[in-house]
Simulated scan of single mutants.
Amino acid sequence: MKYLALLLISSLFMGCEKSDDTPQNTPEAFYFPPNTGSTWETKSMASLGWNQSAVQPLKDYLADKHTKSFMILVNGRIVMEEYFNGHTAATTWPWNSAGKTLVATAMGIAEQEGLLNINNKVSQYLGTGWTSAALEKENLITSKHLLTMTSGLNDDKELVIKSNLTYLADAGTRWSYHNVFQKLMDVVAAASKQDFDLYFNSKLRNKIGMEGFWNVGTIFKIYHSTTRSMARFGLMALKNGKWKEEQILNETYFKESISTSQTINPSYGYLWWLNGKSKYMVPGGQTVYQGALVPNAPADMYAAMGAEDQRIYVIPSKNMVVIRMGYASDPANPNFALSGFDSALWDKINAVIK
């Protein structure tokens, strides 16, 4: 009897020990915030083992570099959320060219709905004569060329009007960062037979709880939103186009978006910037630089990048999304997308997360 009692006690003890260990060994479930309201779960830096003594230097750097807002999310939960210079969680801010990724997403949704095919020529949706190029050259340009910045159209003028869209090279033979991507909005509008904004709102914005709007800028339409709305899109991107139980954008298209889209600039997908590649090009030139886009950032990072250092960094290996909104880190050089700010910022981030 004594032996049986000891055996039972031992079994119970071992069972309790196993139960205690199980939660510690179970990966944390990914979190999506509710689509409405301000509720958003947080996670402490201490629980992640981060270096909290490096947080203040990061904040000081962000403030010094004219940042308005900054967020780090891990597994969907907010680890760091900071606002500077009067900016608040309710304030909207322009994404600038980081919003190109929203257009790429809308294109993918329209394609999965059977409304268009990105491999079809643009003139199939917009009609011929949407450029000033000869018809045989215009007909070479597909939506995919616009998604990958390889239209071959002249890039020396920012305003996208027919007279500025002149032939420079055959589509697919030259990579050049160009505002002509905005013609994709017209493609979606024509294919869906509704205004692009309405299609975008119903198929993407409203489904993930974003709060934002497209505003016509001096050159092209620019998306404005709160920092948390930008983070929502970042979370969907981290989950390969999925939001909660719904696959908003099919995974195949999304993975194409964040993969090298052509051989000229391997650091570019479908309007997404890609880290960890062997070489890259930057807006405004034809120079090819060797090495990764942001060498000190995780190699698997992909990013939405806009003028004045608007950023969504997505890092799958760390289940992390990083958001930065604000004025240009260097007011004398507002830039188009890439800047030296990325490397300097990642030095500060690495000091916290490593």
Score class of each variant (00 low, 15 high):
residue 85 N to M: 04
residue 159 L to N: 11
residue 156 D to L: 08
residue 267 S to K: 07
residue 132 S to D: 08
residue 84 F to V: 12
residue 118 I to K: 07
residue 106 A to G: 00
residue 280 Y to L: 10
residue 181 F to Y: 05
residue 3 Y to A: 11
residue 351 A to H: 09
residue 351 A to L: 04
residue 171 A to S: 02
residue 168 L to Y: 09
residue 243 W to I: 09
residue 51 N to P: 01
residue 141 I to A: 00
residue 219 I to H: 07
residue 311 R to Y: 04
residue 118 I to V: 13
residue 54 A to I: 06
residue 261 S to N: 02
residue 135 L to P: 04
residue 163 S to I: 00
residue 157 K to M: 11
residue 24 Q to K: 15
residue 298 P to S: 01
residue 162 K to F: 03
residue 4 L to Y: 15
residue 270 Y to R: 12
residue 155 D to R: 02
residue 119 N to M: 02
residue 15 G to W: 02
residue 350 N to P: 05
residue 233 F to R: 15
residue 128 T to P: 07
residue 113 E to D: 15
residue 178 H to S: 11
residue 205 R to A: 07
residue 174 R to Y: 12
residue 46 A to H: 15
residue 261 S to E: 03
residue 322 V to N: 07
residue 39 T to D: 12
residue 45 M to N: 04
residue 341 F to L: 14
residue 278 S to Q: 14
residue 235 L to N: 06
residue 207 K to H: 12
residue 143 S to R: 01
residue 289 Y to E: 11
residue 316 P to Q: 14
residue 205 R to M: 05
residue 36 T to S: 12
residue 332 A to W: 08
residue 350 N to E: 04
residue 198 L to K: 10
residue 244 K to Y: 08
residue 144 K to M: 05
residue 180 V to A: 08
residue 253 Y to S: 05
residue 163 S to F: 13
residue 7 L to Q: 02
residue 61 Y to S: 14
residue 69 S to E: 07
residue 211 E to N: 14
residue 199 Y to L: 01
residue 89 A to D: 06
residue 32 F to M: 14
residue 106 A to K: 04
residue 290 Q to D: 10
residue 44 S to A: 13
residue 81 E to P: 12
residue 86 G to V: 12
residue 125 Y to D: 00
residue 222 I to L: 13
residue 314 V to T: 13
residue 28 E to Q: 13
residue 120 N to I: 00
residue 119 N to W: 00
residue 43 K to A: 12
residue 9 I to M: 04
residue 76 G to D: 10
residue 175 W to F: 12
residue 186 D to K: 02
residue 11 S to Q: 09
residue 275 N to I: 05
residue 7 L to D: 06
residue 231 A to V: 08
residue 186 D to Y: 02
residue 252 T to Q: 14
residue 62 L to G: 03
residue 182 Q to R: 00
residue 106 A to I: 00
residue 173 T to G: 11
residue 213 F to K: 14
residue 46 A to V: 15
residue 254 F to T: 02
residue 242 K to E: 00
residue 282 V to M: 09
residue 185 M to S: 01
residue 293 L to T: 01
residue 292 A to I: 11
residue 75 N to S: 10
residue 214 W to G: 06
residue 103 V to M: 02
residue 135 L to N: 06
residue 104 A to D: 04
residue 14 M to H: 03
residue 194 Q to F: 07
residue 117 N to Y: 00
residue 312 I to K: 15
residue 329 S to P: 10
residue 216 V to F: 08
residue 164 N to Q: 02
residue 296 N to K: 03
residue 244 K to P: 05
residue 271 L to I: 09
residue 204 L to C: 05
residue 324 R to I: 14
residue 100 K to H: 13
residue 22 T to W: 13
residue 303 A to P: 08
residue 81 E to N: 04
residue 230 M to P: 05
residue 9 I to S: 11
residue 221 K to A: 15
residue 288 V to H: 09
residue 297 A to W: 07
